[in-house]
Simulated scan of single mutants.
Amino acid sequence: MTEPMPLTAEQFLPVAVAMARREQQQKDGLTLILAPLPNCPACARSAVEVHASETRFPDDTLSLLFRPCGHRFTVAADMGYEVARLAEEIATREEREGGDLLAEYIPPAGEKVSIGQPEPPVFVIALHSDDGTLIVGIRPDGSIQQGPNYQPDAAAAEFWDAVTRAAHSAAPWTEQASG
């Protein structure tokens, strides 16, 4: 058996989000089809089971065992709890807003995950691509946040399509102009 590998916050966040998504679905009463388990951080193999346990003495860590590959990992408990709290916030936002919001929290290479920071930005309007990635978000103060694939023309077209859909759903009895 190999020694457990330590995970950083950046490595643990996707694992914690995947597990928080599943937990949220179970709380909502879903039992048959759940969000996928995270892939193993060492071999990227799909997990069938992830067993988590806590060790208080001597090193105060969280331990993760991925099945079927058998890779084991440790996470410093204090950092692990902060990342797990952030993962729960992400899963809750995803359920409320729809889409996969994890990418908004993954820092550029070489930077650290921000844990214990203020709440993520709340958008009055947020446009997401089909895979859930943020295209552009407009905050209550009018400032915008651009996603990684932001293209002004595509974002404008999607915005006006969304306005049109909203107008038609708000007043479905009105006739649509034929072109």
Rank of each mutant, 00 (worst) to 15 (best):
M79D: 10
P148H: 07
Q151Y: 03
A167F: 07
C40D: 13
G99S: 06
R93W: 11
T74P: 11
R45H: 03
A154K: 12
A177L: 14
G142R: 12
P36G: 06
I106M: 15
H51V: 08
A155T: 12
P152S: 09
S129C: 04
Q145A: 02
R22F: 02
R85D: 08
W160S: 11
T74D: 09
A177G: 06
I106N: 07
Q117N: 12
L62Q: 13
Q151D: 15
H168S: 03
T8V: 03
E10R: 15
G132H: 06
G147V: 12
D161C: 04
T55M: 12
A171L: 12
E88T: 10
F66D: 02
Y81E: 08
E54K: 01
E10S: 07
D131C: 00
Y105G: 09
A156S: 08
E158M: 10
R96Q: 13
F73H: 01
A76R: 14
S114L: 04
V122G: 05
V50K: 00
D78G: 01
E111R: 15
P108L: 07
N39P: 01
A16V: 08
Q176E: 07
F66K: 08
A155V: 07
A44I: 00
E23A: 09
D141S: 05
R96C: 04
Q145T: 11
Q11V: 05
E158K: 08
A44N: 10
P108Q: 08
E3C: 00
P107Y: 06
P140N: 09
R56D: 05
P41H: 13
S53Y: 07
T61E: 10
Q151H: 14
A166E: 05
I106C: 10
H128G: 06
P107S: 04
P36I: 04
V50W: 00
L127V: 11
T61N: 14
G142V: 05
A16D: 03
A157V: 13
A170K: 10
A177I: 10
S178K: 14
Q26F: 02
D161S: 09
D141N: 11
G147Q: 12
A87I: 09
W173I: 14
